Every structure is written in structure tokens, then in C-alpha cells.
Deep mutational scan, measured.
Amino acid sequence: SSRTRFTDYQLRVLQDFFDTNAYPKDDEIEQLSTVLNLPTRVIVVWFQNARQKARK
């Protein structure tokens, strides 16, 4: 499976959201998916990875 290449804009939006809320609800994931034009699955994985990094 090929890795998703995020744009600077997508990363900024995801990071800004994460800084406020590391555990987005389903409807928030749907909204991010629509706004960023990314599959919900990709967003879910991004947040999982971001939470892992934040824990270190």
C-alpha cells in the first residue's frame, strides 16, 4: 500500500485539530475527510500515529 503524501495545508489542519482534540469523533473525522479531501481511514490512522508520537 502506498503512503499518503500530505500537503502542508492538510498537515496544518490536522495538527491544529490535534492540538485541541486528540480524539476526534466520527462526525469530526467525516468533516476533516470532506474539508481535506482525504479518506476517513487515512485520517483515523494519522490521529493514531500522532497520539503515539505525543506519548513519547
Rank of each mutant, 00 (worst) to 15 (best):
53 K>R: 08
3 R>Y: 15
11 L>E: 14
37 N>Y: 02
6 F>Q: 02
55 R>V: 07
29 I>K: 02
11 L>V: 11
5 R>N: 15
56 K>I: 06
30 E>N: 07
48 Q>W: 05
19 D>T: 15
34 T>Y: 10
37 N>T: 14
51 R>D: 04
23 Y>F: 09
27 D>T: 05
37 N>Q: 08
51 R>C: 08
41 R>M: 10
5 R>F: 15
6 F>K: 02
50 A>S: 13
4 T>S: 12
49 N>K: 08
25 K>W: 03
13 V>T: 12
26 D>T: 10
45 V>D: 15
46 W>A: 02
45 V>L: 12
18 F>G: 01
28 E>G: 06
3 R>K: 15
13 V>N: 10
30 E>V: 09
40 T>M: 15
42 V>S: 10
23 Y>S: 13
22 A>K: 09
9 Y>F: 15
25 K>L: 06
34 T>N: 07
45 V>C: 10
56 K>E: 02
38 L>I: 10
12 R>H: 07
18 F>A: 09
9 Y>T: 15
19 D>R: 08
45 V>I: 07
39 P>H: 14
32 L>M: 11
13 V>F: 10
41 R>V: 12
34 T>L: 12
22 A>G: 07
6 F>L: 08
13 V>E: 03
45 V>W: 12
10 Q>G: 01
43 I>F: 03
3 R>F: 15
11 L>G: 11
44 V>D: 10
54 A>C: 14
28 E>Q: 13
41 R>Y: 12
11 L>A: 09
29 I>F: 08
53 K>M: 14
31 Q>W: 07
2 S>H: 09
49 N>Y: 06
37 N>W: 02
4 T>C: 03
41 R>P: 08
7 T>M: 05
37 N>E: 04
6 F>G: 04
53 K>W: 07
45 V>G: 13
16 D>H: 07
19 D>C: 06
39 P>S: 10
41 R>W: 04
21 N>T: 11
46 W>M: 00
39 P>F: 00
49 N>Q: 04
44 V>E: 14
16 D>W: 01
23 Y>A: 09
19 D>L: 11
11 L>R: 05
3 R>W: 15
33 S>L: 00
28 E>T: 10
56 K>M: 10
1 S>I: 11
36 L>P: 00
16 D>T: 05
14 L>C: 07
24 P>H: 01
10 Q>A: 03
2 S>M: 14
11 L>M: 10
41 R>S: 14
11 L>H: 06
8 D>A: 09
49 N>H: 10
38 L>V: 11
43 I>W: 00
52 Q>T: 12
15 Q>S: 12
12 R>P: 02
10 Q>H: 09
32 L>Q: 01
39 P>D: 14
44 V>A: 10
47 F>L: 11
20 T>A: 14
2 S>P: 12
20 T>W: 08
52 Q>Y: 05
47 F>N: 01
7 T>G: 04
25 K>M: 04
12 R>E: 07
